[in-house]
Design a binder for these strands. Sequence first.
DNA 1: TTCATGACCTC
DNA 2: CCTTGTGTCATGAA
Length: 373
Amino acid sequence: MQRVIICVDMDAFYAQCEEKRNPSLRGRPVVVCVYSGRTEESGAVSTANYVARDLGVRSGMPIYQAKRILRDHPESVFPGVDHAYYSQISDRIMELLRFRADILEQMSVDEAYLDVTTRVEGDFDSALMLATDLKETILREEGLTCSVGVAANKLAAKMAADSKKPDGLTLVKPEEVLNFLSPMSVSKLYGVGIKTEARLRTLGIKTIGELAQFDVSRLSELFGRNQAAYLHAATQGVDEEPVVADYERKQIGRIVTLKQNTREPDVILPVLDNLAEDLHRTSRSEGVRFRSIGVTAIMEDLSIHSKSKTLPLETESREEINAVSRELLPILLAEIPGLMVRRIGLRLAGLSKISGQAPLTEFLNTSTTTQRG
DNA sequence: TTCATGACCTC
DNA sequence: CCTTGTGTCATGAA
């Protein structure tokens, strides 16, 4: 049967959550910020609502720049991110979606794919009704809008959802997908970022349609076999990736900005200690062990350096994390003389499920239901 | 295989 | 005084 996939993407999710918490924010520029804690206003914009976007505020922009843009709009607000709050709302939304899908794959806090093939019997018009109902349900239950794409695969559904925001609903049937994609800029293609776009532009390729016409073997020489194959398939609207319900993540990482740039291990190690505590808690709650521990430093010139170590055996020990970070940090610093550290991070990889022990979340779920306590 | 780096993702 | 934070994949060297 013809696959039918729905992509649900919440609009300016963090900003909408803040508006839900405080309805007086609606209609005003809302700029959700990640404050780095160096100075009062240092940090970056996480998410801006559409009022702020229309005035030129963008994700990733320095906060001071957003404030400059909005200096003539004193009604603007700049709340710091509150992940715990957004997660609660996200969890409830995902439950609403789960009931309406054959398979639900949650991609992030604000985005999910639904494989609805069986329940719509491969029929796109029926899927469009289901998608309409989804949007209405999320709006009714949570008061939030989202943009939705319906198509034959994840890639097309994602691009359909992206094509009309906010509060969009876009159906791209298989026979329409080439016409849908071809006039779009290559930069809209999932997996094409600023670097690839620049390289394609030097080849005279601006649209997805132009990329689709480009000689595949030449593309392979220039971009490597893998990326060329992906790009070629993508331009044809072809994507075989299945919707996967319980995706297992492969690494857990945390990175923070230091109050001041420094090279002092006495300053940096306590920070790494805190990160280790955090990662250790996360790994335990997910019921995983790890075999590789890595330290990442972002220097004052924003260059990124990392050192990692793979252990002979997997472990779940926080002390092991600390021991390895104390070992790796001096080696890392020694290789980058003269530059101060701006941000420092820690990462656990080589994750494996602890057998015989359910993850904490599952434990909580099962113990709060009446069945099987 | 391990390790380091780069590109990309999204908010 | 200056831009956050998290995770995946690909590639090339060792």
